[in-house]
Nucleic acid binder design. Sequence first.
DNA 1: TCCCAGCGGTTAATCGATTAAACGGGCCGG
DNA 2: CCGGCCCGTTTAATCGATTAACCGCTGGGA
Lengths: 339, 339
Amino acid sequence: MSDVAAAAGVSTATVSMVLSGAGSGRISAQTQAKVREAAEAIGYAPNSVARSLRTRRTRMIGLISDTIATTPFAGRMLAGANDAAREHGHLVVLVDTDGDRAQERQAIEALTGQRVDAMVYARMWHQVVDAPAGLAEGSVFLDCRPAQGSWRAVVPDDREGGVAATRELVAAGHRRIAYLDAPEGAGVVASELRHQGYLQVLAEAGITPDPALHVHGETDAGGGRAAAEELLDLPADRRPTALFCFNDRMAMGAYTAAHRRGLRIPDDLSIVGYDDQQLIAAELDPPLTTVALPHYEMGRWAMEVALGEREADPAEPHRMECPIIRRDSVGPPPPSQAS
Amino acid sequence: MSDVAAAAGVSTATVSMVLSGAGSGRISAQTQAKVREAAEAIGYAPNSVARSLRTRRTRMIGLISDTIATTPFAGRMLAGANDAAREHGHLVVLVDTDGDRAQERQAIEALTGQRVDAMVYARMWHQVVDAPAGLAEGSVFLDCRPAQGSWRAVVPDDREGGVAATRELVAAGHRRIAYLDAPEGAGVVASELRHQGYLQVLAEAGITPDPALHVHGETDAGGGRAAAEELLDLPADRRPTALFCFNDRMAMGAYTAAHRRGLRIPDDLSIVGYDDQQLIAAELDPPLTTVALPHYEMGRWAMEVALGEREADPAEPHRMECPIIRRDSVGPPPPSQAS
DNA sequence: TCCCAGCGGTTAATCGATTAAACGGGCCGG
DNA sequence: CCGGCCCGTTTAATCGATTAACCGCTGGGA
């Protein structure tokens, strides 16, 4: 900076004021022009480290995640957070802890030492978590909610997602709608919430839930296929005409089970998934109607709150809408089974 | 730090030496213990910003990527880079530019200002790119190679990947092997390289390539399905017994085409994909034999080179092996067509 | 006895910005 | 003619570490 000052024939203080924008009203237009020219000529770029030391603001936000490695969803969340940060002139420092508690602590220490302006704590798969020790006051929880303490958090509205999926099937005329759930007792918050939404819509539609239509399976294609087979092997009068699957991978398995039995989708069987998983949902045959998890929007929301650009209530996690994505896997029930 | 110094009854210089490890041999064990106790009691954590200002090293690496948002592969690359950075006590500053040149420039400026120790420039899908202006000397290219200039870079060895896939099919006894390629003239480096590998293996096996078995299609399930249908509609004596698909999504479409014709995999038709796309390849029915893109390893390699922990030749991009992942979609050709 | 090396620290300059306070010159009102 | 004020700019303290140079003391060799 002193080089610029020398070249412009002014002091470093003047250069600082001009270049940081604090000069308007204080420094003459003439001097400002001189300084800018000199800076340009020299190719001066301010040293953010020195600036941060003095101002005590780094314009960096720490993002601690457990899952970059293992899920394709993390990308959308990161993109949302990244975009929001960029729009407000901040940078994202990313740490993937792989869910390891020790790494998490180490990451928090490193970010604290680096004096990031705020932290976002992301855990994949809507869950209840213990806040890690040392997490900076005012940090934001992303796709998880803290077991205790007062923190701002954002999660998908899985209950309303379950409602949307089930309502889509009811609206198409189905009355025997199965729910292919995640494994029982796995403590997956989303699973229970979506089930609640499912039951609510059935009640609204005056349909008595059939316990036989609520089955569990591993949350992959194999689990979905097994669960679907169990349902499709039911006697004709008890067999479901539509499946609401906990996720798209289970739906993929359900497709396989249906094909094996010669059932056409959506003519003989309607299917709704969950996640709107990129490169899968849209590529199935037929393309899958599913409920989207708003990862991008959640990432953006968390970052905006962390930056103080958006208000949030620490008492209650923010629930973000899961919109239904209509494709071609839902149709009216087959005539023989219509009610 | 001065608080710690006061509490321990020494100067800040001593505290610095003790805590930074430079104290061994200079400071007595007794004093060291005193300092550490005081630091512990106060809960002192060094300010990395101040340290960086003085040492001119931030222990942060900038990672510029164009695709976090749009592909599920980026995660693996990030994870590799992140792990390598962590192991060497560094942090990753991530910027997603969405492929936008202006954002890219802005990102480079911000990272330069932030004085990151090095930069990694990642572009998804093995491609040849123009190095962005202002990219720091010594930056590392990840999953792309610079059109000009001397840079260190890492890309997947797509030629050998094509070899591995084709060899797998030849070894199973196939002689009529089709290549479902990406669209012609799209400038996809990978497409051409894999084709070279394919031709090489055919030549080695003494098989004359049949131009009719080299077809193109969009790189999604729809394109794969269309291309596969074209091939399966060939007269029986010219029909392929095995398909090598440009990627797993095309393979997914090929599965659909096969099912529609009542062909069983691998009994009637063998299929090999490319990418080993998580949540897809392993979930198809039957699970897909495919060639893995070593994203994690490439991310790690690039970061290690950026950190100076690994040597690399700027004259030639490093080619990383694409290992074949054997699952259940490859078998011997049907007896009627065996050669 | 004198000098120098080694020990265990300390002093103070430095990194590159920001910013409150001071400063100097011109102008205006009394 | 002088004091005060405003304007534009400079001076200098500050952020929190690192590190070269230095300091006083002791002990050993010449």
